[in-house]
C-alpha cells in the first residue's frame, strides 16, 4: 500500500513538472472545427503542446474569457459581432500582422468587414452561413422559407442551432424584421414565432446537429452549412435549402486574447493554420467556407455568402433583452 502511494506521489510530481514546460499554447475554439490531426502535426512541427478547449456559442466564449483570469487563453475564434464587442471590452489584443507570413493567402473579399474595418484585431479563419437541411426520404413538401417550418406536420421533427443570436435572428427575418432589430415589437414578433415553432423543435444543438439528421432522429435541421454538407455525405437524400428570407453569415476569426502568455506560439499557430495545406485539411473534414484562396470543399461559393446574407451585429447592452427572450422561448 505504501509503495502504491509513493508511486502515485512520484507520478504526480513527474507529471506536474512536465506540465510546467513553457512551450504551450492555450486555444479556445468552436467544437467540431479543426481536425485533431492538424493540431497534432502542428505540435510535432514546433514542439509546442496545445491545450485545446471548445465552446458552442459566442456567448459561451465571452463568458469564459471574461470570467477567467487574464492570460488564461491565447488564441480564440470569436465571430464577427463578438470581435467588435471583445475589442470594445479590451478582451482581445491588436495583432502584429508582420508575424503572419501567410497573410497573402487571404481572399480580399473577406477583409475589411464592418466589425473590424482594418483587420487590426482579427483575421478571418472560416466562414459559414445558416441553411436548412431536409431529409427527402420523409419530407416531400416544398420548403423555401423559414415560415414553411411552422407546418404542423413537422411536429418534433426539427433540430435548431443552440445559438440565441442565430435563432432569434432567424425568427426576426421570418417575421419581416431586420436580423438585429432590438425594438420591443420586433422581439415580441420573434417570440411569438418561436413559441409557435416550439412544438416542432425536437432539440437545440450547436455542437453536432448533423447527428440528428444522420441518425434520422429528425428530418429537418437548421444548421451551419458544413454540418448540413457532412450530413449529406452520409445520406444522399438530404437536400440543402437556402431560405428565401436570407441567411445569417458568420465569419469566425483568429484573435489573440488580451494579456496572452504565449503570444509567439499564438502567431506560429495562426500562421500554420493559414498554410494552404492546413486550410485544405480543415475544409476537407469540415466543409466550411475558407477565406483563403484554396479549392473550396463546400458547395457555397465564397462570394455568395454575402448575397442575401446578414451579419449578426453587436447590440451592446440590449443583449439583455435577447438573453431574456431566449430564456422565455426555451
Amino acid at each position: 500500500m505504501k509503495k502504491v502511494i509513493m508511486f502515485i506521489i512520484v507520478l504526480f510530481i513527474v507529471t506536474g513538472c512536465e506540465n510546467k514546460s513553457e512551450n504551450t499554447l492555450n486555444v479556445l475554439n468552436w467544437s467540431s472545427y479543426i481536425p485533431d490531426e492538424v493540431i497534432t502535426s502542428f505540435e510535432k512541427e514546433y514542439n509546442i503542446k496545445v491545450n485545446y478547449g471548445t465552446y458552442s456559442s459566442n456567448e459561451e466564449l465571452l463568458a469564459k474569457i471574461s470570467s477567467s483570469k487574464e492570460g488564461t487563453y491565447d488564441v480564440i475564434f470569436p465571430s464577427d459581432y463578438m470581435v467588435e464587442l471583445m475589442r470594445e471590452k479590451g478582451l482581445i489584443e491588436k495583432l502584429d500582422t508582420t508575424k503572419i507570413t501567410n497573410l497573402n493567402h487571404l481572399n480580399p473579399l473577406f477583409l475589411g468587414q464592418e466589425y473590424d474595418p482594418n483587420n487590426l484585431y482579427s483575421i478571418p479563419f472560416l466562414s459559414t452561413i445558416v441553411v436548412i437541411a431536409v431529409n427527402r426520404e420523409n419530407i416531400t413538401d416544398e420548403i423555401t422559407s423559414y415560415n414553411d417550418l411552422l407546418n404542423d406536420k413537422y411536429k418534433n421533427n426539427i433540430v435548431f442551432l443552440d445559438d440565441q443570436r442565430i435563432v432569434i435572428g432567424m425568427a426576426l427575418l421570418a417575421t419581416n424584421h431586420d436580423m438585429n432589430d432590438t425594438s420591443i415589437e420586433a422581439l415580441n414578433d420573434a417570440k411569438e414565432w418561436l413559441l409557435k415553432m416550439k412544438k416542432n423543435i425536437k432539440a437545440y444543438d450547436s455542437d453536432s446537429p448533423k447527428t440528428f439528421l444522420i441518425t434520422k432522429e429528425t428530418d429537418i435541421g437548421v444548421m451551419w452549412n458544413a454540418e448540413a454538407e457532412i450530413a449529406r455525405e452520409e445520406n444522399e437524400n438530404i437536400e440543402i435549402i437556402y431560405p428565401r428570407e436570407g441567411h445569417a453569415i458568420s465569419i469566425d476569426n483568429y484573435c489573440i486574447a488580451s494579456s496572452a502568455k504565449n503570444v509567439e506560439n499564438a502567431y506560429l499557430f495562426i500562421d500554420y493554420l493559414m498554410r494552404y495545406e492546413s486550410a485544405f485539411d480543415i475544409v476537407a473534414e469540415y466543409p466550411y467556407i475558407s477565406p483563403l484562396r484554396i479549392e473550396q470543399k463546400s458547395e457555397v461559393f465564397p462570394g455568395d455568402i454575402f448575397k442575401n446574407g446578414y451579419y449578426v451585429k453587436n447590440i451592446g447592452s440590449r443583449m439583455k433583452d435577447y438573453d431574456k427572450l431566449w430564456a422565455d422561448i426555451k
Binding site: S57, A63, D162, A203, W326, A327, K330
Partner: peptide, 22 residues
C-alpha cells in the same frame, strides 16, 4: 433533454457560462 428542457441546474449553469449574469 435536447437543450430545450431546463431544470434549475441548467438555469444556473446558463447564467454563469453563457448569459454572463453571475
Amino acid at each position: 433533454g435536447g437543450g430545450k428542457e431546463m431544470i434549475i441546474g441548467n438555469l444556473i449553469k446558463n447564467q454563469f457560462l453563457t448569459a454572463r449574469n453571475w
